[in-house]
């Protein structure tokens, strides 16, 4: 007949697993409540079914776009260049993710241009240049210390001239509570619109998978400054689970598109919500 209540110790265990995966107290309670409600209504038969319910409930919180996000970015025909601006706090994996994305787009036969708009961090331009060489993709760059907005402008301009398909703009890591730096980011975004309409097409916020609850504030402030359209979670090849992204995706209605699973050129995967949830239990 099935039970209409989940045992308390099963729920406690579940709560622990979610909290240990950085899901956070608020989102964890929300998930457990939803499970309790559903079970009270539908009943459940055993552990297998409970797991299914759990997966569904968590997946339900992860925001979806109209297109199948399992494929990562969808570059529509006839939108040239498709401009992707990459933002995030320091050291999360922005530049590396750009390298990996450039490789994926190139493999799909697309013409890609990189823009080195991190003009601040030591050797950030050299780092992106290495990725440009690895992927065989042109890069637009200026001197260290030059205006990042000017680099972004020039990058889109160059892409238009070359009739390129995709532009990937790297930006300097910045902590979201630094008002000046966040304003600078808004300006980088704005300036590109002088070259092409409705760009950037995507603002990708990169989150480090080992980050805890602070990722919420990151999402909030970067969204305020640049209207983030998609998320990537990096460094999931370690033991960290990246669970904070569930609450973020739910609250801000931003889909997760990619996960980073290593430092190599191939180590970027399209996000799969069920695999993601399953990883909490491993």
């Amino acid at each position: 007949a099935g039970k209409s209540k989940v045992d308390d110790d099963v729920l406690d265990e579940l709560e622990e697993i979610l909290v240990a995966s950085d899901v956070g107290v608020t989102t964890t309670i929300k998930i457990i409540k939803r499970i309790e409600e559903r079970v009270a209504k539908d009943k459940y038969l055993g552990t297998d079914e409970l797991n299914l319910i759990l997966r569904e409930e968590i997946a339900g919180l992860l925001s979806e776009t109209e297109t199948d996000s399992k494929l990562g970015f969808h570059i529509p025909e006839g939108k040239k260049p498709y401009v992707i601006m990459v933002v995030g706090v320091n050291g999360v994996g922005k530049t590396t993710t750009i390298g990996k994305l450039a490789h994926q787009f190139k493999s799909q036969g697309k013409n890609v241009v990189l823009g080195a708009a991190d003009t601040f961090r030591a050797a950030a331009i050299d780092q992106l240049q290495v990725w440009a060489d690895r992927t065989g993709v042109p890069i637009v760059k200026q001197q260290m210390g030059s205006d990042p907005a000017s680099v972004a402008f020039e990058t889109v301009q160059e892409a238009v001239k070359q009739n390129a398909d995709v532009v990937l703009v790297d930006t300097a890591g910045r902590l979201h509570n630094k008002v000046n730096l966040m304003n600078e980011l808004s300006k980088v975004k704005r300036v590109m619109q002088k070259v092409a309409d409705n760009v950037p097409d995507e603002v990708l916020l990169v989150l480090d998978g080992s980050t805890g609850q602070n990722a919420f504030e990151q999402a909030k402030q970067f969204t305020a400054a640049t209207e983030v359209t998609s998320l990537a979670i990096t460094k999931l090849d370690g033991t960290a689970k990246g669970g904070v992204v569930i609450g973020i995706s739910d609250q801000f209605q931003i889909p997760v598109k990619y996960i980073g699973v290593g430092e190599g050129i191939e180590d970027l995967q399209a996000f799969d919500k069920f695999e993601f949830v399953d990883s909490f239990f491993k």
Binding site: D22, V89, G91, D208, S210, G212, N214, T239, K241
Partner: peptide, 12 residues
Amino acid sequence: VDSMTGQDAVNT
């Protein structure tokens, strides 16, 4: 260690 690290800090 990054001060923004979450639950995994103990493992690492």
